[in-house]
Design a binder for these strands. Structure first.
Length: 337
DNA sequence: AATCTTACCAACCGCATCTTG
DNA sequence: CCAAGATGCGGTTGGTAAGAT
């Protein structure tokens, strides 16, 4: 059958032999690819131009980086995918030496499963709904261990940026299914809050943790009150950050209130109809900022042995929020907390 | 050892967009 | 401006190797 573009030609299909590879490499090295449709003839190959192009781009190009993806590359893929969705070519541009095909394959075979196992929807990067989690749980029945996401919410007051405020432990797959709460507050996470926070005048909640050496734990259904940042009279205004987030339902509040959120979906971002170049620019800027933040957090982490910090969640929040705002918001984007 | 299942990845297919005459 | 061809992209398929039964 062959491609429509080369249906007139008698072309070979399937895997490339070393001889074919050799011919293609020699031809392109000597003459460049020029017009791909003429490459097969000039290189003496019984392939269509499209196939030659693909073989060169995905396999023979000298600048290709072979081998497994590093953890850093994996994180970049997740970050950019969260913003751009399945735009593999765009994502690959952030990974020198990697092809769109390679990124796509890696996503489908590894990252997708990893996100699902963490209770995250690989399409939207949001937490899966209870039904989705349940079906995923079935799919992952072999995994008996509780998967936990843990993260620390830092106090966003610029005067007190080094203080870790709230630790949350979120069992993703093993929670009993509660009825959905009537309001927008999702209480599906058990909250583990340092005792000192319970004593804060801004902390509203009842629970355990009466011992100063223990954390208070607020499982689903307990009476922790969550406050959306824009509605809290006690919120400390933060330049940039509040502006960035106040139009989004959000987990962040200046003093230890915690709430899960529905991050803007990829579809929602697309609905903003930002020009593509602008989106890519925002994406690049966000990734740069995240790299800076990651370095800072690594330094900070060393001083908080008892705390863990899920950058993924922070990134999800910040990038998603950033995508819904003007580029100008990026200038003072959250790095004041 | 044989068979089945799963994971991985190269390559194909069809559509969209770009380029050129 | 338009049509045809070229190129690029994302989804999907199929072959193969590795692991499980």
């Amino acid at each position: 059958m062959g491609h429509r573009c080369c249906s007139k030609q008698k072309v070979k299909r399937g895997l490339w032999s070393p001889e074919e590879d050799d011919k293609l490499i020699k031809h392109i090295t000597a003459h460049g690819h020029g017009s791909w449709s003429s490459v097969p003839k000039l290189a003496g190959l019984q392939r269509c131009g499209k196939s030659c192009r693909l073989r060169w781009i995905n396999y023979l190009r000298p600048d290709l980086k072979r081998g497994s993806f590093t953890a850093e590359e994996e994180q970049i893929i997740i970050d950019v995918h969260r913003i751009l969705g399945n735009r593999w070519a765009q994502i690959a541009k952030h990974l020198p030496g990697r092809t769109d095909n390679e990124v796509k394959n890696f996503w489908n075979s590894c990252i997708k499963k990893k996100l699902l196992s963490q209770g995250l929807d690989p399409k939207t990067h949001n937490l899966l709904s209870s039904r989705q989690r349940a079906s995923n749980k079935l799919a992952c029945h072999s995994s008996s261990q509780t998967q936990e996401q843990s993260f620390t919410v830092f106090n966003m007051s610029s005067q007190n940026r080094d203080a870790p405020r709230v630790m949350m432990k979120a069992p993703v797959l093993t929670l009993p299914e509660p009825p959905p709460p009537p309001d927008q507050v999702h209480r599906s996470m058990a909250m583990q809050i340092p005792f000192s926070e319970c004593q804060s005048p801004n902390f509203v909640g009842t629970g355990y943790g009466q011992n100063p050496n223990e954390s208070a734990i607020f499982p689903y259904g307990s009476s922790v009150e969550s406050t959306i940042i824009s509605s809290s009279p006690s919120s400390i205004p933060l330049p940039g950050f509040n502006n960035l987030l106040d139009e989004n339902p959000c987990i962040w509040e200046a003093n230890a209130f915690v709430e899960t959120f529905e991050a803007p979906t990829v579809e929602g971002i697309h609905a903003q109809e930002q020009p593509q170049q602008e989106k890519e620019k925002i994406c690049d800027m966000a990734i740069d900022k995240i790299d800076e933040a990651r370095e800072e957090v690594h330094e900070m982490d060393a001083s908080f042995d008892s705390c863990s910090f899920d950058l993924g969640l922070l990134e999800s929040t910040l990038i998603s929020a950033a995508m819904c705002r003007d580029l100008s918001s990026m200038d003072d984007f959250a790095w004041n907390f």
